[in-house]
């Protein structure tokens, strides 16, 4: 288990991470979402022991990670810009990591190389950005560490490969009880993949959500009233967002689901049903609650990229 407590990291006068506190369960896939410059990579480097904390603590299995090789043996960090020496091939890279990580599984590496159809003898410098990322993911998976930290590892991969990578990560988590921490600026990328997600913005943890328990203070209802006007609803419930398509109106309403349904039923609706909120919608409306304004031109909050 990873525990992050009041983690703070400053670069000069710029506070990249401000008092972030969260925990990551063992055997889970943990997503970190945020816009560019939000502090995702910095947080991952703190988790991996690359950066030294200015304040707070990061504990892996109750031990400090920074400068602790015993703990670092259990974690592999894949940077958003992987570094490879000139002339290094996938095979050489495998040998290098096998040298540093005792549990490196060469058999698994060979299998993955074949599955991903990469030429292990070709210099990595001649690989495309996506291929290089694949090669690095293969290495990360083959290291067989308890924790895998991936910084925007899925970005730049085509849909098919992305699916394949996700599948392999799932398998790793299921088979080895590995904990995967992955960052992305694409919320949808992680929505169907992670067990829990945090959103950070300007170095602060804005929101944390367990995806198997999408408990939100907002609900989405679709309603059609007999007299065709829904103005009355605005007085009865706390409508955050309103959209109308024909006679059916979609409302994002803040409050308790049971109470909201009960209130709306008083207006004898022809149609009344609740629709599950997407992760993005939850983040967007929760963010509003935290005082973050919506971008008028872009429905997605905080410039999060929607694919």
């Amino acid at each position: 288990m990873i525990k992050i407590k009041n983690a703070t990291k400053t670069f000069g006068h710029f506070k990249a991470i401000k008092n972030v506190t969260c925990s990551i369960n063992k055997g889970s896939i943990f997503g970190i979402v945020g816009s560019n410059g939000a502090g995702k990579s910095t947080l991952l480097r703190l988790i991996s022991g690359v950066y030294h904390l200015d304040k707070g603590e990061v504990l892996l299995d109750n031990e400090f990670i920074y400068d602790n090789p015993k703990i670092k043996k259990n974690i592999i960090f894949l940077s958003d810009t992987p570094f490879v020496e000139l002339g290094t091939t996938a095979k050489k890279l495998m040998k290098e990591y096998a040298f540093h990580y005792d549990n490196f599984d060469k058999k698994e590496y060979k299998e993955l190389i074949e599955i991903f159809k990469l030429d292990k003898n070709m210099p990595l410098s001649s690989f495309s950005k996506g291929m290089l990322r694949q090669a690095m993911i293969i290495i990360a998976l083959s290291c067989n560490t308890k924790y895998i930290v991936l910084d925007e590892a899925l970005d730049g991969l085509d849909a098919m490969i992305r699916g394949l990578v996700k599948k392999k990560i799932y398998n790793k988590v299921l088979d080895n009880n590995t904990t995967v921490i992955i960052s992305s600026h694409s919320l949808r990328e992680l929505e169907d993949f992670c067990d829990s997600v945090i959103l950070i913005h300007k170095g602060e943890l804005v929101f944390q959500q367990q995806l198997n328990d999408m408990d939100s203070s907002f609900i989405k209802v679709q309603v059609a009233l007999q007299d065709a006007t829904t103005d009355c609803l605005f007085e009865a419930v706390d409508v955050v967002k309103y959209m109308k398509s024909g006679s059916v109106s979609s409302l994002i309403v803040k409050g308790n689901e049971q109470e909201i349904i009960k209130t709306i039923q008083k207006f004898n609706p022809i149609l009344l049903e609740t629709v599950p909120l997407s992760l993005e919608e939850i983040f967007t409306y929760e963010l509003q609650q935290y005082g973050y304004a919506l971008d008028k031109d872009n429905e997605s909050a905080l410039n999060l990229e929607v694919k």
Partner: peptide, 15 residues
């Protein structure tokens, strides 16, 4: 270089 510093500083060795 940031990328290489990331790599080597994440390896299981003390500074």
């Amino acid at each position: 270089k940031r990328s290489s510093a990331d790599k080597f500083h994440s390896l299981p060795y003390t500074r």
